[in-house]
Design a binder for these strands. Structure first.
Lengths: 418, 418
DNA sequence: CGTATCTTGTTCGTTTATCGAACTAATTCG
DNA sequence: CGAATTAGTTCGATAAACGAACAAGATACG
């Protein structure tokens, strides 16, 4: 029931049908591999002849490969098909205040090599440094012809289409053309996105991060299958990625998902954004640590306090695990405030699932009860009250997975038609 | 960048290309009529031959008709095309606590006949009554073969796919199969939807209501062109319809858009939903009248108070227009609270436009300044702060227009592919 | 008035997709 | 070994876009 945009539509040409079916087939293999041609034909309710020609095309392009023969009780044994991810590489970049991560990975999310360095705050200097490291990384792994592109996530507002960073307060950037700068330096296609939005994208395309990571089999099983969910990222800031109908919502001015700055109390602590009582001011890592130290202060004062005390969120999480009651209470209170914010998301968008990412998920048993209680208390329906909550530990590098998804998504996405 | 749903996808068949192009063409005529075949070919960047065959098909189906010859400086004069709306009728039904409206209209939204009657709260009784009235209405206007379907809007949660009302507190309905009941009684296709979501749908497909309504030319110009917006309906309850990428968002459990029950104050008035300080508790018509009468009470008490005083929102709006300072202050305060709620919508979804519907728009000059100020104060970007606000008076029957859109949308929507 | 020019709309042969039936290949069962 | 069964390929039929040629209807200009 989508309206056709008469200013910007895509007409069906002779090749469109094939493109659509090709992409459906590719995704069926992705989510059901290993799978035979005959099985694909049955799932697509199409003759096996069509599958033969589509698969031949995809094999020639290197998008699929033939594996072993399958087993059947009777008849000829089928040739099993797989998606090719090993020879299709991605450079994922995560820029943050404290440091910048550069990861060489394959399209399935399997990590190959990870580098870290102190972020340079001048955009040109950072891009120069990144270009050098990307070239070196690709050469070191003989990956120069096999890299499909660069995905880059930024803590701030990004115009994904033009590849411009609109405003990243943590980096002090405003209106910076990142895509063109890095693309000309490296000769690779570059995708830039806001970090929480990219994390949500990773859950669409790569599924939730595995606990026992590093397995040979990739995480390319194709995500949770739920097409309406919200990813809540809790770290220095609090941001969200909103997914509706299998697509990330970016809004009219590329600033959708800024749930971090909705007010949840009229007289709460002052926030960096200038407002008061924002969700972020109550639930960021800074707020949690300040609360642990016995203060509910404005971030400017809290930041100073923290530097003096030297306590980090990871410390609070660890002490909670060791049974420190004050740490558990501080985290539980963060969970309660987070619940107030998330209950608004539930009422506004009725997502099928909510992912929570960040360091505090390390103390999920301190967070979850208060969070769940607050959502249940405010929900209007039983279904909304029971919206599944899924924690994602910061150790699984969700932002880098988001950067990978930026490159993977266009490879597997539905062609735009209409 | 949409992910293909491998559990529920639509494969491209031989007919798909044509269906897509047919629908694009239909929408181009809809939004640019009168328009010639040659113009359509240029806009679609396709040969005129394709347009000829597509148009022939649409003419035979009665979706288009040929009008007069156009004028050109040189060359053969083009035959102008129009969409057929006059001979394609719709029955629109708006069920509310106070009354039920039944409207016979055409696909373009031009009203033909309107009936009103007291709502019967038994679902079966109401459906019986509706079936009788629909049949009578169609016979009286010799429209029995020309009716495309029935659109019905409900104040409550609706599963649009199955046509069930999940929960409508105002009517006291729970789990009522409305669609099947009315379809078998009338023999017509029936579409059921939550009222604010339908109002949003009307803005997608019919555009904003005209001030000087009743003009011969229909409102089928095709909407505002903005594909991300929110419709906020303020009446007995406060609800919203959320539109992302030209499509209404319904959520995982069909309850998206319940912004009315997000909390905007911790110690605010108690709401009918059981919670406290909900947006609805601060901004519903009930709340506005109570505030005018000098109380900020829970709705249960307020309802009784109102019945004793006999004052309605329309009275408050009228008195504000006459210069009553107390009325203006009460409405301004409603605007301020509405601004708090809407600023959350702006931060969450960054819509390109916000429509406000309901009786209080009759005193827009009392509402708007406080509303605008609150949004600007909380917005994170200049673009968000300047999000256009568009009032829609209750007199333009937005809910009935929503019901019409329920029938019109599937006729013109993009075919689902992928 | 006659002719060149220009634009609209139709027709028709070419290419390329799905569709479906026939065919070959590989395997198990009796 | 032969019948039955399943996988995968091939090939002719059909229907769509594509593109060039053509007819129809209008103006401009001698």
């Amino acid at each position: 029931m989508r309206k056709i945009d008469t200013r910007d539509f895509r007409r069906a040409t002779r090749a469109t049908s094939r493109q659509v079916n090709r992409q459906i087939l590719l995704n069926l293999v992705r989510e059901h591999q290993p799978i035979s041609r005959a099985d694909l034909a049955r799932r697509m309710t199409v003759g096996r002849g069509v599958v033969t020609t589509l698969v031949k095309e995809l094999l020639e392009e290197g998008a699929l490969y033939e594996g072993a023969l399958g087993d059947l009780p009777r008849g000829r044994r089928p040739m099993m098909l797989h998606v090719q991810t090993r020879d299709r590489l991605v450079v994922a970049i995560d820029v943050r205040f404290s440091r910048t991560d550069v990861l060489l990975s394959d399209l399935g999310g399997t990590q190959i090599a990870l580098e870290r360095f102190a972020t340079r705050f001048g955009p040109e200097e950072l891009l120069d440094e990144l270009a050098i490291r990307v070239r070196r990384l690709l050469r070191a792994h003989a990956a120069e012809g096999r890299c499909e592109g660069i995905g880059m996530v930024i803590p701030g507002m990004v115009d994904r289409r033009s590849g411009r960073v609109l405003n990243a307060p943590q980096l002090g950037w405003r209106d910076v053309q990142v895509r063109a700068g890095l693309a000309t330096r490296t000769g690779l296609p570059v995708h830039v996105e806001n970090a929480p939005a990219a994390c949500a994208l990773a859950h669409i395309w790569l599924g939730p991060a595995e606990r026992g990571r590093g397995t040979g089999e990739s995480g390319l099983s194709g995500g949770s299958g739920i097409r309406d969910f919200v990813y809540v990222s809790v770290s220095d800031g609090v941001g969200t990625g909103v997914v509706v109908n299998g697509e990330v919502v970016r809004g009219h001015g590329h600033t959708a998902g800024e749930f971090g700055h909705i007010p949840i109390s009229a007289d709460g602590p002052r926030c960096l954004c200038g407002s008061q009582g924002c969700l972020e001011a109550h639930t960021s890592n800074l707020a949690t640590v300040a609360r642990y130290l016995g203060h509910e202060l404005s971030p400017a004062i809290a930041r100073e306090l923290l530097q003096r005390s030297g306590v980090t969120v990871d410390d609070v999480v660890r002490r909670a695990g060791d049974g420190d009651e004050r740490a558990r209470d501080a985290l539980s209170e963060t969970g309660r405030y987070l619940g107030i914010g998330i209950s608004m998301i539930v009422q506004a968008l009725n997502p099928g699932q909510i992912f929570v990412g960040g360091e505090i998920t390390g103390a999920w048993d301190s967070i979850e009860p208060a969070l769940r209680a607050e959502i249940a208390r405010r929900a209007l329906t039983r279904g909304a009250a029971e919206t599944p909550l899924v924690p994602e530990p910061a150790g699984s590098l969700p932002r880098l997975r988001g950067a990978i998804a930026l490159v993977a998504a266009p490879v597997y996405a539905a062609p735009q038609v209409g």
